[in-house]
């Protein structure tokens, strides 16, 4: 099956990139001058935060397409990405907190980017709960899609938070040349590794959802045959 082949390749690629990333983070990249070794959390922080936003972008796209075309495959795409997204948003909040404690001195502060990320977590949650509001599949999917579309407003808010408002979260040092070359390279490899992982998880989750749909269909057929056939 074509899908399985792609997933196998992605598994291999993810594994290799992850291994490379780990090597670079712990062996290759130099320690940062001000923050010491704890700064290496940066190579975890940026990728998981990136994935929490990328996931919701896919939720957004899937939701729009689902409302437009009414095909369940778009809903499957959206809900699969939402599941992965809430996991990575949780990881973003935890990783950030573990970094904040030694470097800022607090586990949490209500500054714009952090607050907006917490809001994103709730929006993901609302996405799932909205689905369960309706007894019927299609209506539930529609409610979820609405959350998936409206909630997307938080994504640019998170992205632009450091430029639009005063806060304590570091700004765009990645884009403004604030990274030594070896650090930039390590970051790029880490980002690639996590993105490959995301793609793998997404394909896997979609495949499982499709399996579940298929099982439902087969069960329906089995019941039919059972009723009309011989014992």
């Amino acid at each position: 099956m074509g899908k399985s082949y792609l997933r196998n390749i992605l598994s291999a690629v993810s594994f290799l990139l992850m291994a490379a990333s780990l090597y670079m983070v712990f062996v290759y990249v130099p320690t940062e001058a001000t923050m010491g070794i704890v700064q290496r959390i940066f190579y975890l922080m940026v990728p998981v935060a990136w994935l929490s936003l990328l996931s919701f972008l896919i939720v957004f796209i899937g939701s729009i397409l689902y409302l437009r075309k009414k095909q369940s495959r778009w809903d499957v795409l959206a809900r699969s990405s939402a599941e992965i997204g809430i996991i990575f948003t949780t990881l973003t909040l935890i990783t950030g907190s573990l970094w904040a404690r030694p470097v800022w001195g607090v586990w949490w502060t209500w500054e714009p980017r952090l607050t907006a990320t917490l809001v994103l977590w709730f929006i993901y949650l609302a996405y799932f709960l909205a689905r369960s509001l309706a007894a019927e599949e299609h209506r539930g999917a529609t409610f979820a899609a609405v959350v998936g579309i409206l909630g997307f407003v938080d994504v640019p808010i998170i992205g632009l938070a450091t430029t639009l408002w005063r806060g304590i979260h570091p700004g765009a040092l990645i884009f403004q040349g604030g990274l030594a070359p070896s650090m930039l390279l390590t970051l790029m490899v880490s980002l690639a590794a996590f993105t490959a992982l995301y793609s793998l998880l997404l394909l896997q989750r979609i495949s499982m959802k499709n399996d579940e749909i298929e099982i439902k269909r087969l069960l329906g057929l089995t019941a039919e045959r059972h009723n009309t056939g011989d014992r």
């Binding site: 500054e111 809001v119 949650l125 609302a126 709960l129 909205a130 909630g151």
Partner: peptide, 28 residues
């Protein structure tokens, strides 16, 4: 479930409103 969902939705929207408020109020 409905009530919980409604509360979560309201919370999320409330937070968004709070964020908007924070934009005019300042962090420091």
């Amino acid at each position: 479930k409905f009530v919980i969902a409604a509360i979560i939705l309201v919370l999320a929207l409330g937070y968004l409103g709070y964020k908007g408020f924070m934009a005019s109020a300042t962090y420091y």
